[in-house]
Design a binder for these strands. Structure first.
Lengths: 235, 235
DNA sequence: GTGGAATTATTCGTATACAGTTTTTCAGAT
DNA sequence: ATCTGAAAAACTGTATACGAATAATTCCAC
């Protein structure tokens, strides 16, 4: 019971608005929306060949879930505030070690096999220096083990800041030096899962969050310097 | 900044649907809705003198926020599953110690004064053996310190299972033996806040959650026994 | 050319209407 | 009295329409 109600694998949605919601969320999660795209209900409705109401419902729901930000003129991707990102790292340190520990005790052999496959895909993507592909693989890896966290409330709490995690990851992925760290970290996490080692899994994910924060801070610093330089040139 | 966007103090809502949402959430949080009440959009719309749409928006939003459960015939309070309640205790143990620690460092003198006042109210309610009043006071106490948690994401995560906390508390409040424990616990928490003692506040809230779980388990056991007895009598 | 006011175009929120579905009710047969 | 089936009622989801608010644009004075 209660497996079909969570949102990450967009299971068969019943209503039109539900389908639009899932489709748009998929686009958001795959990063198919530019930072400047404005989603307007009439346009979405026209694209899906329905009236405004289902489109509007879907957009408002995505906004309330935190995936979009309502503006006076359409819905946009939420602008990532530096402070908020740091807060989410804090939240992740509280939740994810326990989640990973629970997953370690709960992953089925099939799910472990799937994790192994997607890790191979990540390795291949890294070898090919295909950032987009690597990003997708990491997303799938993360979604996969989170899906097997048995505590539903905890799982939902994790999924709520999923988009922020991905956006931050996309920033840090720009620096290729981070790629081996990320893939190696996932491998260690996978190995801990295989050993059913809840402690190691929790420790590993905690280190992961710290490393992610460090990478983010570095990327943030670089961007800040660039901005300062260019504005100095302009002024 | 960022003080007017959260939901716990229902600041002036802009749209009709927002107002209805806040009003209904207030009723839910104050426990004014019976477990068998079915909220139907047409009825809500008629009550507020508007069309179905704003009422429907408000109800669906409440449902997505977890405060209501959509059924084939109207919206109802979510049925609390035993397993789910235990999971939320688990989640609370992860989040609330850190939240209380942050609150201890962040509460203003005015907010501390407000906590003191509401604690006096709780004492009075306990002396008068007024369960309803005590429940309200505890709710205000909790909402007050949570409101001063600076980490917005963490605060939202806490507020998300607010109704579950209250429902469980309402169960455990039936046993008057729990009342002194609860009020004393809040007093200790308040004192830790006053001393700006983040560690003590975190420890205290952690013990609180454990005590709450124990009280819930006991109440649950008693109800189970009663049910077993009555069904044995019936069968 | 530029600043500002008036106009136009979008977009949002709500109202009303209609079709499909599910539950309930009620009549009739056993 | 109870079961069965059809009709009625209730509820949901979606479509269309309209007024209000706000951003974008044009136009005019300087």
């Amino acid at each position: 019971m209660s497996a079909g109600k969570t949102s990450s694998p967009p299971s068969v949605a019943q209503s039109t608005s539900g389908q639009i919601h899932d489709l748009l969320m998929g686009r958001i999660q795959r990063g198919e929306l530019g930072q400047d795209v404005r989603l307007v209900d009439t346009a979405v409705a026209a694209e899906f060949g329905v009236s405004r109401m289902p489109a509007r419902d879907a957009l408002m729901r995505l906004a309330h879930e935190g995936y979009l930000e309502p503006t006076t003129r359409g819905f946009m991707l939420p602008r990532l505030d530096h402070q908020e990102i740091l807060e989410i790292f804090d939240l992740r340190r509280l939740l994810e070690p326990r989640a990973a520990a629970m997953a370690a005790l709960n992953l089925s052999d099939e799910e472990l096999k799937a994790l192994d496959d997607i890790q191979a895909e990540a390795h291949a993507a890294m070898a090919a220096e295909d950032i987009e592909r690597l990003h997708r693989a990491c997303e799938i890896f993360r979604n996969s083990w989170i899906a097997s966290v048995p505590n539903v409330s905890l799982r939902k709490a994790l999924q709520r800041y999923m988009t922020q995690v991905q956006a931050v990851r996309l920033m840090t992925f720009a620096d290729q030096a981070n790629h081996p760290l990320i893939v190696a970290g996932n491998t260690q996490l996978y190995q801990a899962f295989c050993r059913r080692d809840a402690v190691a899994a929790g420790d590993r994910i905690l280190r992961f969050v710290f490393e992610g924060e460090a990478a983010y801070l570095q990327a943030h610093e670089e961007i800040r310097n660039q901005t300062a330089t260019s504005s100095a040139q302009a002024g």
